[in-house]
């Protein structure tokens, strides 16, 4: 009997403990490791630091299609980067075991972005950017349903540097790399930053997070996982033979097909600080003219059509 009571209290105790754990959701807290989610209370007041500029400034370089007759109107000038977006149908996030279908969603009557009915599906914001293209593509998914975890339940567990893949209708895949995770109050999210235009090729995953308050319409916060397209690692060779002679800074062209041009950086304080002083398109003479060139120091970088800039060349002058 004594043994039975002991067993009884033990079992009951365990059940009670289990219930308490369930109620307080402590289980999730324990199983969920520390997240890298940064909570941003007032995103509007905080200007998010922009990633290092990679893009080509509008009109910085002129790209001329040499295969075309120059007088042909088809000749592309200020060529936009080739668009190669996909209509996503599937998302796979290995780090949190997600492999889900994607539907296209739009804007609801109340102005919110739509979400699929099916909690196990993610929704791609179709009026926006296609994954693979320049801009902010957005995919949203539920964190939970009325009955249990949903497709993006573990989204907050993602880490910077995690990779995930979206597959297009045509079978093409685009892989993205997580840059940062931020959460915002539901009604104070930086919509422009998440959905607006950018020269980067981004894909932002959204789900709910924070306290669930039924009276207030559910989860109080929104989690955004920012990621950028993983592109074949492009390294642009640096220009060589950078030389100052007289009023000319000259260098050798980089012999690659996709070079848009070169940036010339000048230092007037003996190499302490360099400022960009010129952008020279690939079709121009590889030279920069400055009467006092022999008094300054220079380096030159090559920039490809995707905006990737090479390492600085060796420093010329002095």
């Amino acid at each position: 009997m004594k043994l039975n009571w002991r067993l009884y209290f033990t079992v009951m105790g365990l059940i009670a403990l289990f219930l308490v754990i369930y109620e307080t959701n402590a289980w999730a807290v324990w199983t969920k490791e520390d997240t890298q989610v940064v909570r941003v209370e007032n995103p509007q007041s905080q200007s998010a630091p922009e990633e290092k500029q990679k893009e080509i400034l509008e009109g910085e370089f002129t790209v001329i299609n040499k295969d075309e007759n120059m007088n042909d109107e088809k000749v592309v000038k200020n060529e936009k980067q080739a668009e190669e977006g996909i209509i996503p149908t599937r998302i796979r996030i290995p780090s949190i075991d997600v492999d889900a279908k994607i539907e296209s969603v739009g804007v609801l009557d109340n102005g919110e972005m739509g979400v699929p009915e099916d909690p196990l599906k993610a929704g791609w914001f179709e009026p926006g950017t296609q994954p693979g293209n320049r801009g902010n593509a957005v995919i949203a998914g539920h964190v939970d349903s009325k009955t249990g975890p949903a497709v993006f339940y573990h989204l907050d567990q993602m880490k910077k540097g995690d990779e995930f893949t979206v597959t297009g209708k045509d079978g093409k895949e685009k892989t993205y790399v997580v840059q940062k995770l931020e959460s915002y109050p539901q009604y104070n999210s930086p919509i422009e930053k998440i959905f607006g235009s950018t020269n980067e090729k981004r894909l932002n995953l959204i789900t709910c997070t924070g306290e669930f308050i039924r009276d207030k319409g559910g989860h109080q916060d929104r989690l955004v996982v920012y990621s950028t397209l993983k592109e074949p690692k492009e390294t642009v060779p640096s220009p060589t033979n950078v030389q100052v002679s007289g009023a000319f800074l000259t260098w050798y062209a980089v012999r690659e097909d996709d070079i848009a041009g070169y940036r010339v950086y000048e230092s007037r304080d003996g190499g302490e600080t360099f400022d960009k002083v010129a952008s020279v398109s690939q079709h121009e003479r590889k030279a920069y003219s400055e009467p006092k060139a022999s008094e300054y120091e220079y380096y030159v970088t090559a920039v490809n059509k995707d905006g990737t800039e090479s390492e600085p060349s060796t420093i010329a002058g002095e």
């Binding site: 007289g246 009023a247 079709h283 121009e284 003479r285 030279a287």
Partner: peptide
Amino acid sequence: EKVWQQDHINAQSDVVTATLE
């Protein structure tokens, strides 16, 4: 050298660039 390069060699190339663009 400076006179020769600046408004001369450079300018001749600029004529080409202007035509292309």
